[in-house]
Simulated assay, not measured.
Amino acid sequence: MEKRLKLLAESYDITIDLGRKGINLYERLPEYITNDPDYHIYLKWATKGSECSKIVEHLSPEKNMNFIDMGCCLNLMFRGYDKWPSTYHGIDISSKTISLLNEFTTKNKVAIGSLHCTSIHKTPFKNNYFDIGACIGVLEYFEQDFVSMAIAEAHRIIKPYGKLVLDIPNIENPFCRIMMLIEEHLGRPDKFNISPLEFEEVLYNHFEIEEIEKIESDPMIRYFLRCKK
């Protein structure tokens, strides 16, 4: 597991370093990916991102809420989380990502709660600290044992009846294949090895599933959850 986390951290660190130089790796994909007939439809989903209204509607962020972004990447910069009234907390395995977010918050005077370079399965927060949370575009990198630990950790830090949104890859979706090709090309291949039913069994001990969103044009299956204690 430690090797896996190190690989992911290094891959995202490289992406950040190149991004600072104006190099966007997603714009330099090989032709075997960009010429794939499913690629351009995949792009429509990728540009939508995690700021979709349904996530906001479910989490219903308010001023006095603490929000945890698990595996935050650059969501604070590009997915609208900096505009939410809730207090933002982010964790990510990439130290370069956290550094860039710290620069962003300082430069733009964005008030947040905290940023931590750590794994989603072992966070520095107290029990029942968060009202709402999200884990978007993260779990696909891991196998079942780690996913189970991450779900248990989310359950620990989210308040009773608190809300969480997360997603997993829809392996049967052709656009998921494109996503996996891209991630493998970037040096962080997806390792998710759980069927939706198996994943839902993991959830049942910790969260109530309020809704499952599965869309034909979306490579991910999104879960809207409420924390059970």
Rank of each mutant, 00 (worst) to 15 (best):
M1Y: 10
E2D: 12
R4E: 10
L8F: 05
L18R: 12
L18D: 14
E27F: 04
Y32A: 06
T34K: 08
D38Q: 11
H40W: 09
I41A: 00
Y42I: 06
T47E: 15
T47S: 12
K48S: 12
V56A: 14
V56L: 15
P61A: 07
N66S: 03
I68L: 14
M70A: 08
C72I: 13
R79P: 00
R79M: 05
I93V: 15
S94T: 12
I98Q: 14
L100G: 05
L101Y: 06
F104V: 08
T106A: 14
C117A: 14
S119Q: 09
P124R: 05
N127H: 06
N127E: 15
N128A: 15
N128K: 15
I132E: 02
C135D: 03
I136K: 12
Y141I: 03
I151A: 02
A154V: 00
R156L: 01
I157H: 05
I158M: 11
G162T: 05
G162F: 06
G162M: 08
L164C: 04
L166K: 03
L166G: 10
N170P: 04
I178A: 03
I178W: 12
E183C: 13
H185D: 13
H185W: 11
K191T: 02
N193H: 00
L197G: 06
E201T: 11
E210Y: 07
E210G: 10
S217I: 11
F224A: 08
C227I: 04
